[in-house]
Design a protein around this nucleic acid. Sequence first.
DNA 1: ATGTTAGTCTCACATGATGAGACACGGCGG
DNA 2: CCGCCGTGTCTCATCATGTGAGACTAACAT
Lengths: 213, 213
Amino acid sequence: MLDKAVVVLEALERGPLALSGLTTATRLPRATAHRLAAALEVHGLVRRDADGRFALGLRLVGLGREAAADLPVTEVARPVLEALRDETGESTQLYVRDGDRRVCLVSLESPHGLRTIVPVGASLPLDAGSAGRVLRGGAPAGARGGWVESVGEREAGVASVSAPVRDVAGSLLAAVSVSGPVERTSRSPGRRYGAAVVEAAAAVEAALGSAHA
Amino acid sequence: MLDKAVVVLEALERGPLALSGLTTATRLPRATAHRLAAALEVHGLVRRDADGRFALGLRLVGLGREAAADLPVTEVARPVLEALRDETGESTQLYVRDGDRRVCLVSLESPHGLRTIVPVGASLPLDAGSAGRVLRGGAPAGARGGWVESVGEREAGVASVSAPVRDVAGSLLAAVSVSGPVERTSRSPGRRYGAAVVEAAAAVEAALGSAHA
DNA sequence: ATGTTAGTCTCACATGATGAGACACGGCGG
DNA sequence: CCGCCGTGTCTCATCATGTGAGACTAACAT
């Protein structure tokens, strides 16, 4: 049943659906889809919107918040990424590794009209993008000033620079990223933002270190 | 099974747990708790942290984000609440009604050392607090300049002012709130912040109206 | 060595998930 | 008006699978 409940949640993740849409999206029989949605509704994981459609329940907001909050780096990194966004004028993100994916835990957007947008909670591959490479452990401590850059790897026209955040024992915790359109970042974003990103990662590390004191 | 899976998620919402802790928190037999956590782990709703404990899975971050995003008022209200926080110097929140509760969808904190903190996703009663009263429909359009205040109702020492956000058809969508310690807000917070809160609610409404155009 | 605790797996049995189909309702077309 | 179709909700016989006691493994303490 849990498997099917998750299928329902994933269908609703794309947007609210009436029962017939849910039936189509999940490939479940109407009665099964209805019953699962109703069962999820009892628990607040699904709700009925004003049009009577099924939608993801607001209980998930709190659960998602607590999931992110279990990683102390999330809140510690937020003000640092805000400053980095303001300093660079580009969008900034914090990623952590989740199995063979990376998940975005903090995402702050550039004020420019043209900007990169990564939703909080987005799950992205590790094999593309600078943050993916960082989180795979591909950032040798000394090489290239401690940052990794990518241009058009995960998405055409998007460049990024990332640096690792490590804990006091040296374990890789997260990646701090700046990303933006190639038009502004240039094809060598590392030259432009690398030092700032590394500095931000160090600030996160420092804040984490003091949070443990 | 779904009921029990939710019990597991709720147990982990309080923080990561080893299996024995999960067994205690859920009152489920060890094997059942283990199997449920493992099943949830397959779906990313639970993860194993660095210490091998079960924790809420990062998949929930994205689900929570999408749940909130299904309500357009959430993103529309964010910049307005940022400005309101900066203008008042107090914490600001956006609440929506969820059944017989209210859920906080946006929560921005005052820069003061002493501030109110409401977690995003927090589910609170409707029968206490200014936002609760607003969302119960207890804010007559003309009365008291369109705002509702409360002092120490939900939490001792905390005062708040809230105003309703309505859609173009006049239906109640959300409540905008300013809250802070009585020491700063005074026992008549409405006198101090009411106009700003109502103005913010109107700005949200205007932004919603233009988002539909 | 023995006992305890933590995590994981097995399996007989009971429970409840399942889905085809029934039912109710509303809207539309002939 | 009636019939049809689509939507949402409920029923119930069937059987798939969830359940938990207990077994097994590993690590740690005495």
